[in-house]
Design a protein around this nucleic acid. Structure first.
Length: 616
DNA sequence: GCAAGGTC
C-alpha cells in the first residue's frame, strides 16, 4: 500500500478523486494500492520552554538554548488552559497506522518551505523510517496531478528545503521566546511583553506612523483657483504652484484677469493636451487584496474576512483562501468561460457576465509562472444560497473581481489645458470613453482628486476665455493617515520593497513581513497583547505598545530587514549552504538581544505602571 | 504566559 499525505483534507480528497479512490475512512480515503490522508496544516510545533525544564519565567534561564528541539502536538486553548488538540492527536494516530502499513510514502503537502516542514515534522515525530517520494505540483487540475504523479521526485531532493524550513522555525522560537521573556522579566514581570521577528516590526510601523502624525506640524500654503467658461460649460483650473507666503499669493492673485476685475476674456489658452489612456482590469484577488477591499468597503477586519472566506471554502463555494498569488495557470483559465456562464443570472453581475461571453477574455491574470502554492481566489461555480449578509458580501467581492479581471480595459481620455492669466493654471479632465471592467461595480476611482473635472470643453491654443471667478485658497499640509487594517496589510506586503540593501530587498521580493495565512493573526496578536487598539477603522498604539516600541525601535528585532537577512540565508541553505553557520549566528544574536533586553526593560517598568494608574 | 507558521 502506498500512502499519499496532503497538507489539508481538501487536497487529499482532490488527489483521491483523480485516482478514483472512493472508500471513505475516518481521516483518509482508500483505493486499491493507494490510501490518501492529510494533515491540518502544522500538526506539530516546537515544544514550549517548559518542556526543556525552563519552568516559570526566570532570568537565570535566559537565554534558553535547547541543545535539541522537541516536537509537541499542537495545542488549543480551553477553559482549563492549553491542551493537546484531540482532533490533531486522532489524525496523527491515523497517519501513524497508515505509515506503519505503507510500502512507500508519497509526500503531497503544498509545494513550498512550510509544506515540507509539515510533512517532515510528522515523519520524524512518528519516528518513521520508510522511504518517501515527493509530489511537486503548483496546480490542482486533474492533468497537473496526473503529471505530478508520473514525475515523483526522490524525497531526499528536498532535504535542503527542509533544512531551511527547520532553521526558520527554530530561529523564530529562539529569538521570539527569549526576547519575550527577557523584556517581560526586566520590565517587572507583571504582563506579557511579546516580541518576534514579524510582530515587532509590525508594531514599530504602527507606532512610528502614530508618532509621526502626533508631531506633525501643518504648514499653511496658498493656491489660486479659477473658473472659466466655454460654450456655457464652466470648468475649474488650479495654479501650478503653491505659495507659502500669503503676501506673494495675494500679489499674484491680483494679477489674475477675471471678469469682475474688468477683463472680459483674460484666460489665455497656451496648451491643450488630450491623451487616450488604457486602464487594464485589476488582477484577481489573493487573500491580502481581498482583506484590503473588504476593510475599505465593509469595514471587516482582516481576521473577519479570513474567517468568512474560510467558511465559503469549506462550503466549496470558493477556491483555496490563503493564497498569495493573484494569477491562475492556463489549465484553470480553460475552465473560466464555463465558470463565468454560471453567473449570467447573478443579480448584480449577470449582465456583465453575459457580456464576457461575447468577447475575448482579458488574460492579464493568467500567468502560470506567477502561481505559487495556490492560485488566485476564484468562485467554484457551485450554487450559493442562504448566505449570511457578511458572507454574501465577501462572496460577491470574489465573483465581481473575477468578472472584472477577465473584462476589457477601461478606455479614458485625459485632457490637460494650460491657461495663462498673470500666472499659470492647469485644468485636468477625464472622460471615460469605454468603461470596460469598471462597469462591473460602477464605482468612482479612489484616486480621483476634487479639483479634477469630468469632461472639459473643446478649446484651442490661442483662445481667450472669460474667467468668471477667482479664489485664493488657504490650505494646510496634512500628515500621512493613521494605519488601518487595509493600509497595514499593504505595508506588510510591500515593506520589503523599501529596504535599501539590494540583496535583502531581493530576498524579500516575494514575501514581505508574515505570510497571507498569518497576517490577520499578527494584527490580532498585537491587539491581544494590548499593544494596539482599533479606533473606528484605525489601528492606534496604546501606552504599552509605545513603551515597548521605545525600547526596541533601534534594535534589529524591530526592523523588517531582519526578515530580509533571514530569507537570504534560508535561500542559501535551500541551495545547499551550511546550516551550522546560520544556526550559530542565530544563537549569537539570541544571546545579544536577550542581554540587551534584560537591561533595557527596566526603563519602561514605570510606563506600564502609569497605564494601570490611568485606568484605576 | 511567550514566536511564526500552517489549517479545521
Amino acid at each position: 500500500m502506498k500512502i499519499v499525505i496532503a497538507e489539508k483534507p481538501s487536497v487529499g480528497r482532490e488527489l483521491a478523486k483523480v485516482f478514483g479512490a472512493t472508500t471513505r475512512k475516518d481521516g483518509y480515503i482508500e483505493s486499491k494500492g493507494y490510501s490518501f490522508t492529510w494533515a491540518f496544516g502544522h500538526l506539530l510545533q516546537l515544544a514550549p520552554p517548559q518542556d526543556y525544564g525552563f519552568i516559570g519565567w526566570r532570568k537565570q534561564h535566559l537565554p534558553m538554548l535547547p541543545a535539541k528541539f522537541k516536537l509537541a502536538i499542537r495545542k488549543i486553548k480551553t477553559k482549563d488552559g492549553f491542551v493537546e488538540d484531540p482532533a490533531v492527536r486522532k489524525q496523527l494516530d491515523t497517519i501513524k497506522k497508515l505509515f506503519d502499513e505503507a510500502t512507500e510514502i508519497i509526500v503531497a503537502t503544498d509545494a513550498g518551505r512550510e509544506g515540507e516542514l509539515i510533512f517532515r515534522y510528522i515523519y520524524y515525530y512518528l519516528k518513521c523510517k520508510k522511504p518517501f517520494k515527493r509530489l511537486w505540483i503548483s496546480s490542482q487540475t486533474d492533468e497537473a496531478i496526473k503529471d505530478g504523479f508520473r514525475n515523483l521526485k526522490p524525497g531526499t531532493d528536498y532535504d535542503t528545503l527542509f533544512n531551511s524550513a527547520h532553521c526558520r522555525s527554530e530561529s523564530d522560537w529562539l529569538v521570539g521566546m527569549n526576547a519575550t521573556q527577557a523584556l517581560s522579566i526586566s520590565a517587572g514581570n507583571r504582563t506579557v511583553l511579546s516580541l518576534g521577528r514579524v510582530q515587532t516590526p509590525t508594531l514599530a510601523m504602527i507606532c512610528a506612523r502614530f508618532l509621526e502624525i502626533k508631531t506633525f506640524v501643518p504648514q499653511t500654503f496658498y493656491q489660486i483657483s479659477i473658473l472659466l467658461i466655454k460654450d456655457e460649460q464652466i470648468f475649474k483650473a488650479v495654479s501650478t504652484s503653491n505659495y507659502k507666503n500669503k503676501e506673494e499669493a495675494e500679489k499674484l492673485f491680483s494679477l489674475v484677469e477675471d471678469v469682475p476685475s474688468g477683463f472680459p476674456t483674460g484666460g489665455n489658452i497656451t496648451a491643450v493636451e488630450a491623451k487616450p489612456r488604457k486602464e487594464p482590469p485589476p488582477l484577481l484577488h489573493d487573500l491580502s487584496s481581498l482583506q484590503q477591499e473588504a476593510n475599505k468597503k465593509k469595514g471587516f477586519t482582516a481576521d473577519q474576512t479570513l474567517n468568512l472566506l474560510q467558511n465559503l471554502y469549506e462550503s466549496k463555494l470558493v477556491s483555496y483562501p490563503r493564497t498569495g498569488s493573484r494569477y491562475i495557470g492556463d489549465d484553470v483559465f480553460a475552465g473560466v468561460p464555463d465558470l463565468i456562464t454560471k453567473f449570467t443570472n447573478h443579480p448584480d453581475f449577470g449582465k456583465q457576465a453575459q457580456f464576457l461571453q461575447t468577447i475575448t477574455l482579458n488574460k492579464r491574470s493568467v500567468n502560470a509562472k506567477k502561481v505559487t502554492d495556490h492560485h488566485a481566489v476564484l468562485p467554484t461555480g457551485e450554487e450559493a444560497y442562504g448566505l449570511s449578509s457578511d458572507k454574501q458580501a465577501i462572496y460577491d467581492m470574489v465573483v465581481g473581481r473575477m468578472i472584472e479581471a477577465f473584462h476589457q480595459e477601461c478606455l479614458k481620455e485625459i485632457t490637460k489645458i494650460t491657461i495663462q492669466s498673470g500666472l499659470t493654471f492647469i485644468a485636468n479632465g477625464t472622460v471615460i470613453r469605454s468603461a470596460g471592467w469598471r462597469s462591473v461595480f460602477n464605482e468612482t476611482e479612489d484616486d480621483k482628486k476634487d479639483e479634477d473635472n469630468a469632461a472639459l470643453p473643446k478649446v484651442a491654443v490661442g483662445e481667450q476665455l472669460p474667467i468668471t471667478e477667482k479664489s485664493l485658497l488657504e490650505k494646510q499640509t496634512k500628515p500621512k493617515p493613521m494605519f488601518n487594517e487595509a493600509s497595514l496589510l499593504k505595508a506588510l506586503e510591500t515593506c520589503g520593497k523599501e529596504i535599501e540593501d539590494e540583496e535583502l530587498r531581493y530576498a524579500m521580493k516575494d514575501s514581505g513581513l508574515g505570510t497571507p495565512a498569518t497576517r490577520a493573526s499578527i494584527i490580532e496578536t498585537l491587539i491581544t497583547r494590548e499593544y494596539i487598539t482599533r479606533e473606528k477603522r484605525n489601528l492606534i498604539p496604546s501606552t504599552k505598545g509605545l513603551a515597548v516600541y521605545e525600547v526596541v525601535k533601534d534594535k534589529q528585532i524591530a526592523q523588517a530587514e531582519l526578515t530580509g537577512q533571514w530569507e537570504k540565508r534560508l535561500e542559501e541553505i535551500r541551495s545547499g549552504a551550511s546550516v551550522k553557520d546560520f544556526k550559530s549566528e542565530i544563537t549569537e544574536y539570541t544571546k545579544m538581544i536577550t542581554n540587551e533586553l534584560l537591561i533595557a526593560g527596566a526603563s519602561i517598568s514605570g510606563r506600564l505602571e502609569d497605564k494601570k494608574l490611568e485606568q484605576a
